[in-house]
Simulated assay, not measured.
Amino acid sequence: MQYIGIAADEPSRLERISGNKVSLLAKYSYTEAMARELCEQHGLLSPIYATGTRGGCWFCPNAKIDHFIRLRRDHFQLWLELKRLSRTPNLCSYGFKWGKTLEEMETMMDWEERQLKLF
């Protein structure tokens, strides 16, 4: 079973769920606002929300590369925590949505930052 974070108030996204995917947010009638509040209460809300349009959890393996670049640049302590957590035994996944490890992601981020500096 794959658990995905689609809120109860996102009907068009919920309609696209198929196969072995389930949204626990929808199952328990959690809206986006409720999920955000719960994340805030437990210190899980990404600081990226202060500078970006959407961030999710600061440690989300489905985040975009630029999200992780900003996280590493602006909140280096959280980046170090993510690196520490990536070495936890028995994780459900050791990769990101691209099938990359944290170390491989960091290399991709380095190349992306170099490219951005050229322009």
Rank of each mutant, 00 (worst) to 15 (best):
Q2A: 12
Q2Y: 14
Q2C: 09
Y3S: 12
I4R: 04
I4Q: 08
G5C: 08
G5V: 02
A7M: 08
A8V: 01
A8Y: 09
D9F: 01
D9L: 06
D9Y: 02
D9T: 02
P11F: 01
S12F: 02
L14Q: 10
R16G: 05
R16M: 07
I17G: 05
I17W: 05
S18Q: 15
G19M: 06
G19R: 11
N20D: 14
N20A: 11
N20V: 08
K21H: 15
S23L: 04
L24M: 13
L24V: 08
L25S: 06
K27C: 03
Y28D: 09
S29G: 11
Y30Q: 11
Y30L: 11
T31L: 02
T31H: 04
E32H: 01
E32F: 00
E32N: 04
E32K: 12
A33K: 13
A33E: 14
A35G: 07
E37P: 01
E40L: 13
E40K: 14
L44E: 08
L45Q: 05
L45V: 00
S46R: 02
P47L: 01
I48H: 02
Y49V: 00
T51P: 00
T53S: 01
T53V: 01
R54T: 08
G55H: 02
G56T: 05
G56L: 05
G56K: 06
C57V: 01
F59Y: 15
F59M: 14
C60T: 08
C60A: 09
P61W: 06
P61I: 08
K64S: 07
D66S: 06
D66I: 02
H67G: 08
I69F: 03
I69D: 04
R70V: 01
L71V: 03
R72L: 01
R72A: 05
R72E: 05
R73A: 10
D74Q: 11
D74H: 05
D74E: 15
H75Q: 04
F76N: 15
F76S: 13
W79L: 04
L82P: 04
K83N: 12
R84F: 06
L85T: 02
S86L: 04
S86E: 03
T88D: 03
P89R: 05
P89M: 05
N90M: 07
L91P: 02
L91R: 13
C92R: 12
C92P: 01
S93A: 13
Y94C: 06
Y94S: 07
G95F: 10
G95N: 13
G95R: 12
K97R: 14
K97F: 11
W98A: 12
W98K: 10
G99H: 04
K100N: 03
K100M: 13
K100T: 12
K100S: 08
L102D: 03
L102E: 02
E103N: 09
E104A: 15
E104L: 10
E104S: 10
M105A: 10
E106Y: 06
E106G: 05
E106N: 10
E106S: 10
T107G: 00
T107R: 11
M108L: 14
D110C: 06
D110A: 13
W111V: 12
W111L: 13
E112I: 00
R114V: 06
Q115D: 10
L116P: 00
L118H: 02
L118S: 12
F119D: 11
